[in-house]
Simulated scan of single mutants.
Amino acid sequence: MLKDEKPLYINIKIQIRNAIINGKYPLESKLPSVRELSAEFDCSSITTKRVYRDLAREGYIFTSQGTGTFVHADEQKIKNRGFGRFGPGFGRRVGRNII
């Protein structure tokens, strides 16, 4: 692996997160299953489970046992996250002060 290359799961996570932020996956929509996502990205199910686990921890998605994985319904929670850990503004909160 080259020095500046990110692990596969991070690249997949960034793509899914951007698809959520950009509206490809609308609020409350069902995401592909772990098996479907594994086939789409030609990777193991362990990799896609890690992607979904990380996105759930970041508040973008939630999983309902036996039903599937869904985009979180809270639009503000998603918009305030922006690019998350791996993009511009890491560690900064977006906000407004009205004076």
Rank of each mutant, 00 (worst) to 15 (best):
Ile61His: 01
Pro26Arg: 05
Ala73Lys: 12
Tyr52Leu: 01
Leu55Tyr: 09
Lys49Met: 03
Thr47Arg: 05
His72Pro: 02
Asn80His: 14
Cys43Ala: 00
Ile20Thr: 08
Phe41Tyr: 14
Gln15Thr: 03
Gln15Cys: 15
Thr48Phe: 02
Lys77Pro: 14
Asp74Tyr: 02
Ala73Ser: 13
Gly95Val: 03
Arg53Cys: 04
Phe86Trp: 14
Val71Pro: 07
Gly66Pro: 05
Gln15Ser: 09
Lys13Trp: 08
Ser44Ile: 00
Gln76Leu: 04
Ser38His: 00
Ala39Leu: 14
Pro32Ala: 05
His72Arg: 12
Asn80Met: 14
Thr63Gly: 01
Ile98Gln: 15
Cys43His: 00
Tyr9Val: 12
Gln76Cys: 05
Pro26Glu: 02
Arg50Pro: 10
Glu40Lys: 10
Gly82Asp: 05
Phe62Ala: 08
Asn11Val: 05
Asp42Cys: 11
Thr63Met: 01
Lys24Trp: 07
Val71Asn: 09
Tyr25Arg: 11
Leu8Arg: 14
Ser29Tyr: 06
Asn18Ile: 01
Ser64Ala: 13
Phe70Val: 14
Met1His: 10
Pro32Tyr: 06
Val94Arg: 00
Met1Thr: 12
Glu5Met: 04
Gly23Met: 03
Val94Pro: 00
Asp4Trp: 08
Val94Leu: 00
Val34Gly: 11
Gly23Tyr: 09
Gly23Thr: 10
Gly82Thr: 13
Arg17Lys: 06
Ser33Thr: 15
Asp42Trp: 01
Gly91Phe: 01
Ile21Thr: 15
Arg50Tyr: 04
Pro26Ala: 06
